[in-house]
Write a protein that binds this DNA or RNA. Sequence first.
DNA 1: AAGATCACCAACCGCAGTCGT
DNA 2: GACGACTGCGGTTGGTGATCT
Length: 287
Amino acid sequence: MGRAPCCSKVGLHKGAWTPKEDALLTKYIQAHGEGQWKSLPKKAGLLRCGKSCRLRWMNYLRPDIKRGNISPEEDDLIIRMHSLLGNRWSLIAGRIPGRTDNEIKNYWNTHLCKKMKNQGTDLEEESPSASKKKTKKNKQRKEKKKNKETSEDEETEKKTKVYLPKPIRVKPLTLPRTDSSFTFDSSASSSQGNNSNSKVESPEGTEDVMNLVCEVGMGENNGFGFFCEDHDIVNESNMLECETYFPMDHGQGTLEKLYEEYFQLLSVEDTCQYELDLDSFAESFLV
DNA sequence: AAGATCACCAACCGCAGTCGT
DNA sequence: GACGACTGCGGTTGGTGATCT
């Protein structure tokens, strides 16, 4: 209902983009601007679906995209932002000029996940460790490859993707979506898949958050908001050591005010209200 | 040297939000 | 309010080069 047909259903190109396609897309967007993705491919003479065009433009062709390695500063920023916002890559990307949500997501999954793990941060609940996952994935591929060789008939069957039931997305702007930084028992949310009515409801989690112990500090750089330096919850004591980084253009009084505002949000008993308030608070830094 | 495994990242997929009718 | 079209987002997959055994 209402969904545009997938490109595979209408015989459009899939997979890697060719330089020619890139050129066509770039030329068209330079001439007509972004938007109208649905009709863009046709107008631009591309055999791609609009979604694919948008993704290519947004993640690769846009002139303001910064290519190359993530700098240590960006690395640090991503970690801090993630500790605040969880897996909300677009918000994080919005704060890092020239970087895309996809790039940051990939970078997190490949580099930072490991890094955090090495530092003793428990991220497993939020996103299974990349290495474990990859090992499993590679094993599966191996098996698949084996099977492919053994049976032609099975091959066609295997081409039919089988998707596990996806967890239902929780309400918009629910913070954190899958982030373990805050102990909103993410297992109670949708990540386990079974709880289809799941919405973040965790009185215990709220208590955890209410027990946060934070410290106010001033960041050296980056000039943005609030984050928890050691974003693992100490289960024994339900305490979390936080550090606060505020924009450089805020006065110290404002910083404390913001801090207090944030801390008050942590004390809101109504979890839903807490999430909404926390979200708008967090996002106020990002605009 | 060759096969196996790992790591990276571009691209895909499906869902949810928003907007117009 | 219901419906459909469109857009954006986050999770996941698959291709490929690098590294290991």
